[in-house]
């Protein structure tokens, strides 16, 4: 019985963490899949949201902390977007620059401490725990909080991406020229898109911090790769004609699968620091696989051609000897 309890507990933790990190994946779904921008400020934005959320929660406002974190994330997204749309900085580079700059700002927010503790702080998780204290849902309060957040974000995205502004944002990633000819400024749609995705990334960071009751200044490091890996894993299950809602839901599924695999790997004594290598390898495979698959016939052709040539050569060689 103890074994099953252990597995159940493990599974529950994996789902909780998976749901929380799936919000970052949904942010990337907006910036990477829709806007076609690889937003490398994700790491910094995640920690920024966590730090701002933690400071506000510690000061006694657990609900306000969520809004504050999202506002901070939107601000970070705004800066990244302005750098690339109004100041001629390459989109990858502007993400890296914002990421670097945020590190200092995070230290300021956290009062120059590398770690903030929230052991005795009221958070959205403790509030939910109080609310469900005497019900059978009590032990699931963390999943419920995470699930509510994920559902709200998915519903928001699936409605928003069908509005005129949402369509314009999708078209910006698809064909920016066409956006211009529809009398819409692609700089504007990029800014709006990155602000929203930034606020989701920060929300995800804020929830993770409150979940584990602490923030460290390196909480977000490697998040962009992990989220990208989850997004691409989710993409494997997509049909060609999947609609927006389906694609958003599969992004969440991708995050859950990633977290499960990671949890299982930890269970089999994989050291925790291997997570980042694993996520890096997954991203490499997921992005390069379609390319290599397309290239495979060429490899095969050149291999066969080489064999054919060498066969010709050996035949000629023997022929020459006969003549001699």
């Amino acid at each position: 019985m103890q074994f099953f309890d252990q597995i159940g507990g493990l599974l529950q933790t994996a789902v909780e963490l998976g749901l929380i990190s799936s919000i970052t994946v949904l942010a990337l779904f907006l910036s990477y899949s829709m806007l076609n921008i690889c937003d490398l400020s994700t790491d910094g934005c995640f920690t920024f949201g966590a730090a701002v959320g933690a400071v506000v929660a510690i000061s006694g406002h657990p609900y306000l902390s969520i809004l504050a974190a999202m506002g901070a994330g939107a601000l970070s997204g705004l800066v990244t977007a302005i750098l690339q749309t109004k100041m001629g900085i390459n989109s990858l580079l502007s993400g890296i620059i914002v990421n670097t700059g945020l590190f200092s700002i995070i230290m300021v927010v956290m009062g120059e401490r590398p770690l903030l503790n929230m052991n005795f702080t009221d958070t959205v998780f403790t509030k939910m725990k109080e609310l469900l204290k005497d019900t059978f849902l009590g032990q699931y309060h963390k999943i419920i909080v995470a699930l509510i957040a994920v559902i709200l974000v998915v519903v928001f995205l699936s409605v928003f991406l069908r509005t005129k502004l949402g369509l314009a944002i999708r078209a910006t990633g698809n064909n920016p020229d066409m956006v211009k000819s529809s009398s819409i400024n692609p700089a504007f749609t990029t800014i709006v898109g990155l602000c929203i995705s930034g606020s989701f990334t920060a929300l995800s960071g804020c929830l993770l911090a409150q979940y584990q009751k602490s923030v460290s200044s390196d909480l977000g490091s490697g998040r962009v790769t992990i989220a990208l890996a989850s997004l691409l894993i989710g993409g494997i299950f997509l049909m060609k004609q999947s609609r927006i809602t389906g694609r958003a839901i599969f992004s969440v599924v991708g995050a859950l699968i990633f977290q499960m695999v990671y949890t299982v790997a930890l269970r089999f004594n994989m050291p925790a620091y291997m997570l980042k290598l694993v996520s890096a390898v997954i991203v490499i495979i997921a992005i390069s696989a379609p390319y290599l698959k397309k290239k495979f016939p060429e490899f095969k052709r050149s291999f066969l051609h080489g064999r054919y040539l060498s066969k010709l050569r050996t035949e000629n060689d023997t022929g020459d000897k006969k003549d001699a």
Binding site: T163, K164, A171, D177, M178, S181
Partner: peptide, 28 residues
């Protein structure tokens, strides 16, 4: 012919953008 339309979006969505009706948050 590839320049004027967004290939990843449906015919209807492309037309909706071109028609440009309603406010930013309006749905079809």
């Amino acid at each position: 012919p590839l320049k004027g339309t967004a290939p990843g979006m449906t015919i209807e969505e492309n037309l909706a953008l071109a028609a440009g009706k309603g406010g930013w948050l309006s749905l079809l």
